[in-house]
Every structure is written in C-alpha cells, then in structure tokens.
C-alpha cells in the first residue's frame, strides 16, 4: 500500500495505490490524519484509481476521515474508483456523503 499526499489549488488529494485492508489501514489513517489536521485546503479528494484491492476496512477508513472533516465543513469526494472499490462503495452508500467524481484531478501530480 502506498499513499501520496498532493496539495494543489486548494485541494488536499490522497492518491492511494495497492491493497487497503486491516493490515494497511492503520498507517494510512495516521498519515491522512496528520495531513488533515493542517489547514490550507478547501476540499479533500481520495484518488482510488490505483487501488488493487479493498475490503470494508476501506469504508471505515474513508468514513472516519469524513467524520473528522465534517466539523470543519470540508467537502470530500472519491475520485476515479475502479470496479474493485466501486462495488463496495455502492453497497455501503458512502457516495451519499462523499460523492464520486471522475476525470483528472487538478491537484494530482
């Protein structure tokens, strides 16, 4: 699992790649929370296009970050989820609070 944090144009973008499960989630959570605790961004983007595997741990991970940002009113979206992630995202209903977006993210390196 790899996480790249990219800041550009008011966006904080987390570019995830590899496998998201119980074993990789704690490190991701910590790294994301460090970035989220800072300021200087108006939206948060989770780029999921390079995620090769995800179980429901990924839902908990994203919803946990959403709850952290909710108090500050920061919108969050899920960018380019591949079919592997999309199936669980749809099942969980997460798109109701973190909409799905497609295309090239401005903040992406």
């Amino acid at each position: 699992m790899n996480l790249q944090t990219v800041r550009k144009g008011g966006s904080l973008c987390f570019v995830l790649s590899g496998e998201i499960d119980e074993s990789s989630a704690p490190a991701l959570r910590q790294e994301m929370d460090e970035a989220l605790s800072g300021g200087g961004f108006r939206e948060v983007v989770f780029d999921m296009s390079a995620v090769s595997f995800m179980d429901s741990t990924g839902i908990g991970l994203l919803l946990g970050r959403y709850k952290r940002g909710r108090g500050r009113g920061i919108p969050m979206k899920i960018l380019n989820p591949n079919p592997v992630c999309d199936k669980i995202f749809v099942l969980s209903g997460i798109y109701q609070v973190m909409p799905k977006a497609e295309g090239v993210q401005e903040g992406r390196a």
Binding site: R29, D55, S56, I59, G60, L63, G64, I88, L91, S92
Partner: peptide, 11 residues
Amino acid sequence: DQDRSGMGFTV
C-alpha cells in the same frame, strides 16, 4: 471508535 464500518457480513 476504531473506524469500523460494520459492513463485513453485508459484504
């Protein structure tokens, strides 16, 4: 509190 979604059996 540990970011569990409670979705395991549903999945």
